[in-house]
Each structure stands twice: as C-alpha cells, then as structure tokens.
C-alpha cells in the first residue's frame, strides 16, 4: 500500500534504509545500461539479476512487478505489433493470413522492450523504496538548488495527484449526468469536460502551493537546518563508486563498439 499522493511503499527493509544517493547512482547505471548495453539480452539479464532481487529485498516484489508490467507491457505489445508486422523487407518467421511477423522487427522490438524495462523498473524501484523528502534532501545536500529539488519531488507526486483530481472531477461530472461508459466515441466525448477543469484546477493548485511555500520561507537564502537524518555507510560509498565505474565502463564499451569498425575500416 503506497502512501497518499506518493509512490513510496513503506516497508522495514534494507533496500528502504539505503542512502537515497546509493539508489540514485543505481538508477544512473540502469539508465546508461538500458540505453547503451549492446545486444538484446543484457538488459533482461540486468533486470533479473540486479533489479528484481533488490525489489525482493525491499519486500515490494508484488506491487513492483504489477507496476512494471502495467507500464512496460503496452510499449512491448505496440513495439512487437508495429515493428514485427511492418518491418520493411525482412525474414518472415510467423504467417497470419496476409500478415507476417519479420525476424528483424521482432529483434528490434525485443531490444526496445529490454531498454524500457531496465530504465522504467529502476525508476520504480527508486520511487517505491525512497521517501520523497529524503530524496529532496539528498539532492539539496549535493548542491542541487532547493527549487529544482522541489520540482523533482513534485514530479514524483504529480501522477497520483492528477489521478485523484481527475477522479473527483469525473465523479462530479457523472453526478450531473455525463456519460463516461460505452463505446470509444462516448469515452472520448467525456474527456472534454474533464480536461478543462483538470487543467485550470491544476494551475490554481500550483499557484496556491507556491504561496504556501513562500509563507514557509522556502525562498529564504542563508543557512537552513533539517530534522531529517540520512544514514550513510562505508560499504554504500564503495558501492556508489563501483556503480560509477561500472557506468563509465558501459559507456567506454559502447564507444569502443562504435569506433571499432571505423578504426578497422
């Protein structure tokens, strides 16, 4: 069960107790790995060997897998359909009447899905196991300006906030007789009376939240204090450096693979 307006799932776990910077460094590695791992399967192996065990360590395996499937599956299905069926030329591997799946398209879809899986799952792992305030403090302590750190924090909260506001507006419109169930056209038509109050209401919310922040001296310059305490350990510092080295190694490997044919040519 996540906390209201946050993706964080409170659990008593080692993963939750990790310093946010350690988890951020892992996300950085997964981002670079997801984008630059060569071949098809390394991203899937990294997901199975690194990310999934960490989710199990964080005792969030079930909601984590559910969220990963919900976010990755639509991309995977559309990639397989679009790239598999409409790859120009290519070798047919499966015929379905006039349609045929091409081997090259399916390989491209598998590679793309692996990249999305690795990047999305690492971000979900971070947000499910890290309190937003601790993440904000970590960023501030590392020199990120407070307002930028706050924007990053609210970005994590924006999806559940938007969802809640949209549900309230939808309920209000339904109570006035708006049809929201039925065929695609009816559902599309129901979106219009939802979008306008949602957007206008969100602008008012942003304005009021900005005032609330100013009232609490958020814009004040000078030294600030905090009640939050972040625990760091030597082994985590070592892990972070290893992750940084691994990220640089992935980048170097990718650059080598890119340069190799040019050097030989």
């Amino acid at each position: 069960m996540s906390t209201p307006f946050s993706l964080f799932i409170p659990r008593d776990s080692g993963m939750h107790r990790l310093h946010p910077l350690t988890k951020l460094t892992l996300v950085g590695f997964c981002l670079v790995g997801g984008l630059f791992f060569p071949g098809i399967w390394l991203t899937y192996i990294a997901f199975l060997v690194i990310i999934l065990p960490l989710a199990a360590w964080g005792r969030i395996l079930r909601p984590f897998l559910s969220a990963v499937i919900k976010t990755t599956l639509p991309f995977a299905v559309s990639l397989v359909l679009v790239q598999g069926l409409f790859w120009p030329g290519g070798t047919p591997v499966l015929e379905l009447g006039p349609l045929s799946f091409k081997e090259e398209g399916l390989i491209f879809a598998a590679r793309g899905t692996g990249r999305i899986l690795m990047i999305v799952s690492s971000f979900l792992l971070l947000t499910f196991t890290t309190r937003a305030d601790e993440l904000m403090l970590t960023l501030s302590q590392k020199g990120v300006p407070d307002n930028i750190a706050y924007i990053m924090l609210t970005t994590l909260q924006i999806v559940p906030r938007f969802q809640s506001k949209a549900n309230t507006i939808l309920d209000a419109q339904r109570s006035r007789g708006l049809e929201t169930e039925g065929n695609l056209l009816t559902r599309a038509r129901a979106l219009l009376p939802l979008i306008q109050p949602l957007l206008l209401g969100s602008i008012v919310d942003i304005e009021e939240r900005a005032i609330a922040l100013e009232v609490r001296a958020f814009g004040r310059r000078g030294s600030k204090t905090t009640l939050l305490v972040l625990h760091d350990t030597t082994w985590q510092r070592v892990m972070r450096w290893l992750l940084v080295l691994a990220t640089l190694a992935v980048l170097a490997w990718r650059i080598y693979l890119w340069l190799e044919p040019r050097i030989q040519g």
């Binding site: 906390t3 307006f5 964080f8 309190r131 937003a132 305030d133 601790e134 904000m136 706050y150 924090l153 609210t154 909260q157 919310d205 009021e208 939240r209 609330a212 922040l213 609490r216 958020f218």
Partner: peptide, 11 residues
C-alpha cells in the same frame, strides 16, 4: 484550501 497548503516536501 487546506490541501494546497501542504507542501508535499515532508513525509
């Protein structure tokens, strides 16, 4: 609006 006065910056 009580909801919008919660900064969301603390847990």
């Amino acid at each position: 609006n009580p909801f919008n006065q919660i900064t969301g910056a603390r847990f």
